[in-house]
Design a protein around this nucleic acid. Sequence first.
RNA 1: CGGGGAGUGGCGCAGUCUGGUAGCGCACCCGGCUGGGGGCCGGGCGGUCGCAGGUUCAAAUCCUGUCUCCCCGACCA
Length: 575
Amino acid sequence: MTRLSQTLLPTERQPPADAEAISHQLMVRAGLVRQMGAGLWSWLPAGWRAHQRVVGIIREEMERIGSQEVLMPVLQPAELWKRTGRYDAIGGELFRLKDRRDADMVLAMTHEEAMTNHVAQIVRSYRDLPFSLFHFQIKERDEPRPRAGVLRTREFIMKDAYTFDRDEAGLQAQYERFREAYARVYDRSGLRWYEVESDTGMMGGKRAHEYMAPCAAGEDDVVLADGGAVYAANVEVASADPQPVTLPDAPDAPVRVETPGTRTIAKLAAHLDRPAGALLKAFPVVVSGSEAYADGVVLLLLRGDHEVVDVKLAKALGGTVRQANEDEIRDRIGPPGFLGPIGADVPVVVDAAVEATGTGAWVVGANETDVHLDGVVLGRDFAYDVVDVRAVVAGDTVDGTPVTIEPAIEVGNIFQLMTRYSEPLDATFLDEDGKTHAIVMGSYGIGPARIVAAAVEQFHDERGIAWPKAIAPYEIEVVGLGKPGGDEAAAAERVYDELREAGFDVLLDDRAGGAGSKLADAELLGAPLRITVGKRSLADGRVEAQIRRGQETIEGGLPLDGLSDAVRELWERVP
RNA sequence: CGGGGAGUGGCGCAGUCUGGUAGCGCACCCGGCUGGGGGCCGGGCGGUCGCAGGUUCAAAUCCUGUCUCCCCGACCA
């Protein structure tokens, strides 16, 4: 029963004043969601239908690869999280509370601990492996900054799946099956998407992929070569060949140049009439917990036209990294604004793009106020290690193909956890020889709400949402024009009944409104196909049809006689 | 956590500077007209102005405190 006259669909003409992202504006305007607090959202009937259609697709694809659905609690004893170390490792993002007996509890932000704990109790033998489990469950995360409506919230439903194998080869096999399943999920949902290599982050483990849906409200930047066909990676891990810069020939030794007041690359480039890419930017950092470097200051050099990526830097140096403060800089290197490797009392690392640029003379700070050194040659004038830590920029190349950078929202990710959770939680099994091994795990997440919001971001126009047909709240909206109780309304009822019987999800606008507001609401809500029943075409025994995406009106409409067949045929080419 | 902005009916806003009985558009209710692109006329309902305290004869408006929300950054499986 989906008659608009009896449906809670609170459409708004104006978006909330604080809505910035398009999906945020449209989802509220179309009556899909309502906000309760920062990062806390309720789903209204139409929005929940879209969400549940995404859930349905995911469930089918999980079951297709043999994963089994379960359900685990959100409220969990902190004990488990203490055993894996995450109770202390995770900061304010983890909701912590106490129960009436004063026991520490947490609200789960993900379910590795819960899942691994159960498997540890159940699995004994290699004969029990491999298998995989998944569930749809609420996750609670005290996000520092919820934003963009439903795109980044503090409470959301996630499908998370976990695989359990006896060895890495088994994990690889399951991982590949999940990659294929994920591709089918995103293809079926109708999104534009990319699979990119990603950082393993705090989850630990070995390999990881993210699934990114490009859209303006995206939080991540993705590097793409040939639209993702040649290369696709998050900028946090991406590598590419830098754009060329011509370096002057080097003299026999560095030359002092007076550079008064040129504390920035831009000023220095102007002063010396040299491209920024021919200058070396010095970036002093303090490393700790690294095996390769003693705790303390390290000086990073990168091309003047490049920026450092913190994630890549931390990984390259093998520890945690922060920017050095002014005292540390003056103490160990020189005056800020004129820093350089020569004479610096710290290890020097050089970004790979500097070496890749070629041989020739570089300009660096002289560690002396208002002085730089020109004609500096890598290796000859100072020793260094090479690290790849810079941010790829648009126009760089991968295998000769130039890259572009697009904002995108992460709609899913997969991780090879290895034994990160099975070891601390004693999830082990006995092999054929009676030897004990830790179970090798993978974890696989998808956020259905983000798929919904990303679809709205990707498919909308000035009039509203234009849903992909696989996840639209309603497949067809039948708009009855004319007076309530009139011929047009009666015909619309018959069309509604026939299309429902034909198996479509149909919404009938049977409200007593004017044509303008009905058609405007239909376009805002964005059903992929609209059937309009009005006297113009009814006189010829026909109804009008419009494909929402691109506002394509079907020439001549569709005949009432044999309507469901005609709609089925048309449906085939609705996006 | 740092920076910026905002809390006045369901939504969007004015009023605050300069204190004096809380307004507008849309939505909503009633009646009528209209019935193919948010239509028209008439009549209505609805707000302790985020909260608390203070100043004052009088506070949406001034002062103090506090809560909440949004944006940018930091942060973020």
